[in-house]
Simulated assay, not measured.
Amino acid sequence: MRKVTFAEFGGPEVLRLDTAEQPHPGPGQVRIAVRAAGVNPFDWRIRTGTLQDAHPIELPAGLGLDAAGVVDELGEGVEGVEVGEHVFGVGSSAYAEFAVLSAWTRMPAGLTFEEAAGYPSVVETALRILREVGVRPGQTLLVSGASGGVGSAVLQIARDRGITVIGTAGPANQDYLRGLGAQAVTYGEGWVERVRRLGRVDAALDVAGSGVLRELIELTGDPDKVVSIADFGAAEHGVRFSGEAGSLPDALALAADLITRGRLHIPVEKSYPLAEAAAAHLDSQAGHTRGRRVLVP
Rank of each mutant, 00 (worst) to 15 (best):
V123R: 02
V123I: 08
E124N: 15
A153I: 12
G148A: 13
V123L: 02
L130K: 00
P137Y: 13
P137V: 05
L141M: 09
G151H: 01
V143F: 07
V133I: 11
R159D: 10
S121D: 06
G151Q: 04
P120I: 13
Y119R: 03
P137I: 12
R136K: 15
E132R: 15
S152W: 05
G118C: 07
E124C: 10
G134N: 11
A146C: 11
E132T: 15
V135S: 00
P137Q: 02
V123Y: 05
V122G: 00
G151R: 00
L130R: 09
L141T: 09
L141N: 04
L141R: 01
T125M: 04
A146V: 13
L141V: 12
V150A: 06
L130P: 00
V133L: 02
L141Y: 06
I157S: 04
A158W: 07
P137T: 05
Q156W: 07
I157Q: 05
G149H: 05
S152C: 10
A158I: 05
V154D: 01
A126M: 09
A158S: 10
G149Y: 07
P120Q: 13
L141G: 06
L142H: 08
T125W: 02
V135A: 04
G148H: 03
R159Y: 14
A158C: 11
Q139C: 04
V133E: 03
I129E: 07
S121K: 03
I129M: 09
V154T: 11
G148Y: 11
P120A: 10
S147F: 08
G138M: 10
S147W: 10
L155R: 06
R131S: 15
L142V: 09
G149P: 04
A126N: 06
V154L: 09
E124G: 08
V135D: 00
R136H: 14
I157K: 00
G118H: 03
E132C: 05
G151F: 06
P120K: 05
L127E: 13
L142E: 06
L155S: 06
L141F: 05
L127A: 12
G148F: 09
L142I: 10
V133K: 00
A117P: 00
A126I: 07
Q156T: 06
A153P: 00
Q139T: 05
L130D: 03
A153W: 04
R128C: 12
L127Y: 12
G138F: 12
G134A: 13
Q156H: 06
V133P: 01
P137W: 12
V143S: 03
G134Q: 11
G134S: 14
V150H: 03
S152F: 08
T140K: 04
I157C: 07
L127G: 08
A146F: 09
V133M: 04
V150I: 14
R159V: 15
V123W: 01
V123E: 02
Y119C: 04
G151N: 04
S144R: 14
V122Q: 00
E132M: 14
R131T: 15
I129N: 02
R159H: 15
V150D: 03
L141S: 03
G134H: 11
G148D: 10
A126Y: 08
V143K: 03
V154C: 04
V123A: 00
G134K: 09
Q139N: 09
R131G: 10
G118F: 07
L142Q: 05
G149M: 10
G145F: 11
V154K: 04
A126G: 12
G138A: 08
S152T: 15
T125P: 03
T125Q: 02
I129L: 15
V123N: 05
L142N: 02
S121Q: 14
